[in-house]
Amino acid sequence: MSIADILLLFAAGFLSGTVNAIAGGGTFLTFGAMTVTGLPPIVANATSSITQFPGYVTSALAYSREIRADWREALLLGGLSLVGGLAGALILLSLSNPSFRAMVPWLLLAATAIFAAGPLLRPRATFIDKPVGLFGLVGQFATSIYGGFFGAGMGIMMLAVLGLSKGGDYHRLNALKNFLAMVIAAVAIVVFASGNVVGWPQAAVMIPGGALGGYSGVWAARRVPQPVIRALVVMVGLALTVYYFVTG
Rank of each mutant, 00 (worst) to 15 (best):
I50V: 10
I50G: 09
Q52K: 09
F53V: 02
F53H: 03
P54C: 01
P54Q: 14
G55K: 12
G55V: 09
Y56V: 00
Y56K: 03
V57W: 11
T58F: 05
L61W: 14
L61P: 07
Y63R: 13
Y63W: 15
Y63M: 04
R65H: 08
R65K: 12
E66L: 15
E66G: 12
E66I: 05
E66H: 13
I67C: 07
R68V: 04
R68M: 03
R68W: 12
D70V: 10
W71E: 10
W71C: 05
E73S: 10
A74L: 01
A74C: 03
L75R: 05
L75D: 09
L77M: 04
L77H: 05
L77E: 01
L77D: 00
G78D: 08
G78K: 08
G79Q: 04
L80Q: 02
S81H: 00
G84E: 01
G85N: 04
L86T: 03
L86Q: 08
L86E: 04
L86I: 02
A87N: 04
G88L: 00
G88K: 02
G88P: 00
A89G: 08
A89P: 04
L90V: 03
L90F: 07
L92H: 01
L92K: 03
L93D: 00
L93N: 02
S94G: 12
S94I: 00
S94T: 04
L95I: 03
L95M: 09
P98C: 09
R101N: 12
A102V: 05
A102I: 08
A102S: 13
M103N: 05
W106D: 04
L107C: 05
L107M: 12
L107D: 08
L108V: 15
L109D: 12
L109N: 05
A110M: 06
T112V: 10
I114P: 13
A116G: 07
A116F: 11
A117L: 15
A117I: 10
G118Y: 04
P119G: 14
P119Q: 11
R122M: 14
P123W: 14
A125M: 11
T126V: 08
F127L: 14
F127S: 13
I128E: 15
D129W: 12
P131I: 15
P131F: 11
V132T: 09
V132P: 07
V132H: 09
G133M: 03
L134E: 13
